[in-house]
Design a protein around this nucleic acid. Structure first.
Length: 473
DNA sequence: ATGTTC
């Protein structure tokens, strides 16, 4: 029998589209549907969906795509979530995995990365010469030239073309809402990973045969070492959410707006509180993109230390999975929220950045620690889901439950500790990051199978972890 | 996720 990867679930408040194979669908918690039902109570919503990695979050599930028309739209800080602009970046190196065969060399690389990319708790970045007000208002365009090196992409252009967006235009007046303490802290944090599920990983790739042409057009080759980065807007984005929430609540109370969940915040787009939030959210998107860019810059410096000046780390792509912005779909303007969902445009879609117009842009999907990650490309049928796909494996266990149920030995064996294939981790104790063990997550291969089965995207390359850098808590 | 949470 043919597996069904796409369902419409009718709830009292409306329909949620669920993209998941039967096994994943049947394993979904009822709370996920309760949450959808609350989210669907926000007025004028035109579409809501879940990707197969969906799991419960605050106000809204991680794995949600929620869409409004521009002319009568709403924005919801709860749907965007607190780590505004969190996303992925992949850089391609000119190394083959055989050059990192020695565990000792992987350890040396990780150690050197820590020199340029501080990972201790409350780490300060090494970028005090960068002006924060330039970054948050102009994104990558606010960086001094030295941080935008030439030949940073396959076509030797600057890296500004190889991102979902190099700049989110915003009204600078909104920035006055943030305290000087937030400015100070965020300046120091620039170029740091953070903790939780954030990481920088050294991986080797296996190209998917059926999409070899696309992979090679992007500059990928079999056995290539790539650097995958997962990070967000650090304290800046969290402060934006917090700062805006009281205003949002006030607007909701004054207009008689609300759902069954008091934690679900939203306001009509045209309202001034909504506009302030959107502007500040865009500042956080700018921060997050720059932050990942600087993390890559730091790793590149470390790579040059270890492998010499011939070491290259060209940008494949950078994109987000926590954000909301305006998009055109078949000529119509929509306000699209993605919380733990990744945009994945197909070949020929006009919103692809110029270098990826004919192939579609890379969509970067992390697995959990010790498991594979994926480089995907959108498929035409993805338009049914506003070109949204999954953002990763998706949690199945809370952090506390993972610590209670999973042993250090189980974690160590999934990291192949003590073998030649060991996935080297920078943290001295696996115990400190036990809540990130792969046993806390769904099986990423199964998630990808659902996305491909539903016709939303295709696999271009599978990325296998060789070494991981995590922040301390 | 987050310098959390007085």
């Amino acid at each position: 029998m043919k597996e069904n990867y796409s369902r419409q679930v009718q709830l009292p408040s409306g329909v949620v589209h669920v993209y998941a194979g039967s096994e994943l669908f049947n394993a979904l918690d009822y709370q996920v549907f309760q949450m959808a039902n609350n989210n669907l109570q926000i007025p004028n919503q035109v579409y809501m969906s879940y990707t197969p990695d969906v799991h419960v979050g605050v106000g809204t599930c991680i794995g949600t795509t929620a869409v409004w028309n521009m002319h009568n739209g709403y924005v919801s800080p709860s749907i965007v979530g607190s780590d505004i602009g969190c996303g992925m970046r992949v850089h391609m190196t000119n190394l083959h995995k055989d050059e990192l065969k020695e565990v000792k060399l992987r350890r040396k690389l990780v150690k050197t990365i820590e020199k340029y990319l501080p990972v201790e708790d409350h780490a300060r970045g090494h970028f005090s010469d960068i002006r924060l007000e330039h970054i948050v208002t102009k994104g990558l365009h606010g960086l001094p030239k030295k941080y935008i090196p030439d030949g940073y992409t396959p076509r030797k252009a600057t890296s500004l073309t190889h991102v979902e967006s190099s700049k989110f235009s915003m009204d600078e007046n909104a920035l006055n809402r943030l305290s000087s303490q937030v400015w100070h802290r965020s300046h120091r944090q620039l170029g740091t990973l953070g903790n939780g599920n954030h990481f920088a990983e050294i991986q080797s790739i296996e190209i998917a045969e059926e999409n070899r042409e696309v992979a090679e057009a992007w500059g990928l080759f079999d056995g290539q070492v790539v650097i995958m980065i997962h990070s967000g807007s650090r304290a800046w984005g969290g402060s934006v959410s917090q700062t805006c929430s009281s205003d949002m609540l006030k607007v909701m109370r004054m207009n008689g707006l609300g759902t069954a969940d008091p934690k679900l915040l939203f306001a009509p787009l045209e309202h001034s509180a909504a506009q302030t939030y959107v502007n500040l959210m865009y500042s956080a998107l700018n921060y997050a993109v720059v932050n990942r860019h600087l993390i890559a810059y730091a790793i590149r410096e470390a790579g040059k230390d270890v492998f010499g000046s011939k070491f290259e780390m060209t940008t494949l792509y950078d994109l987000m999975h926590n954000y909301a912005w305006e998009e055109k779909h078949e000529g119509q303007s929509y306000f699209v929220h993605r919380k733990g969902a990744t945009r994945s445009l197909p070949p020929g879609h006009p919103d692809n950045p110029q270098p990826y117009l004919t192939t579609g842009h890379p969509a970067l999907i992390p697995g959990s620690m010790g498991t594979a990650s994926y480089i995907m490309v959108g498929a035409t049928d993805g338009k049914a889901n506003f070109h949204s796909i999954c953002h990763g494996a998706g949690r199945i266990r809370s952090r506390s439950a993972t610590k209670r149920l999973i042993t250090l030995n189980e974690f160590a064996s999934s990291m192949r500790v003590g073998t030649d294939e060991e996935i080297v981790v920078n943290q001295r104790s696996l115990e400190s990051i036990l809540d990130e063990s792969p046993q806390a997550y769904k099986d990423v291969d199964q998630i990808i199978e659902s996305v491909v089965g539903a016709g939303l995207a295709k696999v271009v390359a599978k990325c296998k972890p060789m070494a991981t850098v995590k922040g301390a808590k």
